[in-house]
Structure formats: C-alpha cells, structure tokens
Simulated scan of single mutants.
Amino acid sequence: MTVQTIYQDTLRFASIKHLGQTLPSSSIPYVVHLSNVAMEILVAAQHHSDFNLTLALQLALLHDTIEDTDTTYYELEEEFGTTVASGVLALTKNSALPKEARMMDSLNRIRESVPEVWAVKLADRITNLQQPPAHWDTAKKADYQEQAKVILAQLSGGNTFLEHRLAEKIKAYSQYL
C-alpha cells in the first residue's frame, strides 16, 4: 500500500472520529489541525534519512483520537496495528492523573517510544503555537509557552529539524504575551 493511500485512509478515519469538533474559538473543523501536524511531519521527513514517514503520518493524523474522541487503544490496534496504537497512547495524556502531572507522564512515555512519536509531539506543539484563543488571559498564554519550552527540553535530540522549528515558534509566540 502506498503512503498516499495510507494517509487518505488514516485521514478518513480521523475525520470521522473528530466529526463535529472544531478548533478552539473557531468554526474551522478540527481535522485542519491534524492536517497541519501531518504537514510538519512531511517537511521534517525530508531532513532525516532514517525516518518512518508512513508511521509518523499515521501518528500525526491519529494523535488526538484517544484523548479527544471515543476511540479506544484496541480500536486503533485493530485498525492500524500495535505500533500505531502504542504511539497514539504515548501521545495521550492520562486523564486519571492530576492535571499538573499529565504532560510529564506523557513526555516520559514519548521518550520511551520510537523517534516518530517524538516528532509528532514536536509537530503538534509547533502547530498549536499560533494565535491563542481570544479568551486566554496572559497567564494562560505564558503557561502554554512554558509548556512548549518543557516539551522542547524533554524531547531534545529526537528530531533536530522540528526542534529548531519549535524553538522559532516559541520565540514568535512571545508576541501574544
């Protein structure tokens, strides 16, 4: 199966799962975020010779399915295999933990995963560091930027290209503070 077919099948699955969801404070379908993360992965793959593009694209398109929809690990495993399901699970914050512990728990699981999982987390935060929702106050924006710095520090050495992109986005995000 070609990477294009796998991309289309995965995007279709993710679109159905996220149907009706929109970007925060917007009417834009949530699938746009997923496509933007996948676009970051496509560009990053051109800068790394030992990179499983197919896996990374699937993870990019599915990274929020367990966390934000009724999709289960087992459903992903059946549809896409254990490697994809495990990668998505690593990218998923554990809602059973206290909120302040969720990100570090996920980052610890990401660091134990393959480089493509690291790349998707970096690409996700790159994509999210756009103009923040209008209802966020300065403290929320500053906290989000600090979280991005933690992600960058914790995933340092995973994907040089995406690390540089995230560092640039963190710096540019200061305009919103």
Rank of each mutant, 00 (worst) to 15 (best):
M1Q: 11
V3Y: 05
Q4H: 10
Q4F: 12
Q4P: 04
Q8N: 04
Q8A: 11
D9G: 06
T10H: 14
T10Y: 11
T10K: 10
A14H: 08
A14F: 04
A14P: 04
K17A: 15
H18R: 09
L19T: 05
L19Q: 10
G20A: 02
L23F: 06
S25N: 12
S27K: 08
S27Q: 13
V31N: 08
V31T: 12
H33G: 01
H33N: 08
S35Q: 15
S35C: 13
V37D: 05
M39T: 05
M39R: 12
M39V: 00
E40C: 12
L42T: 12
L42V: 02
L42S: 11
V43K: 09
A45N: 07
Q46N: 15
H48C: 12
S49K: 14
D50Q: 15
D50E: 15
L55T: 12
A56L: 11
A60R: 04
H63E: 01
T65V: 09
E67N: 03
T69F: 05
D70R: 11
D70F: 04
T71Y: 03
T71G: 14
Y73A: 09
E75W: 02
L76G: 08
L76R: 07
E77P: 09
T82L: 05
T83N: 01
V84F: 01
V84L: 10
V84C: 05
A85S: 03
S86K: 12
G87R: 01
L89E: 13
L89Q: 15
A90C: 02
L91M: 04
T92A: 04
K93I: 07
S95N: 06
S95A: 14
A96E: 13
L97W: 11
P98D: 10
P98F: 11
A101H: 14
R102V: 09
R102D: 04
M104F: 03
M104A: 01
M104Q: 02
S106N: 04
S106E: 07
R111A: 14
E112C: 11
E112V: 06
E112P: 00
S113D: 09
E116C: 11
E116T: 03
E116S: 01
V117T: 15
V120E: 12
K121V: 07
K121R: 14
L122Y: 13
D124T: 09
R125Y: 14
I126V: 13
W136Q: 06
D137W: 05
K140Y: 10
K140S: 08
K141C: 06
A142E: 08
D143V: 07
Q145N: 05
Q145G: 04
Q147I: 00
K149T: 02
L152A: 08
A153F: 05
S156P: 02
S156N: 10
G157W: 04
G158W: 07
G158S: 06
F161A: 11
F161N: 07
H164Y: 12
H164S: 07
R165H: 10
K169A: 10
K171A: 01
Q175E: 01
Q175P: 00
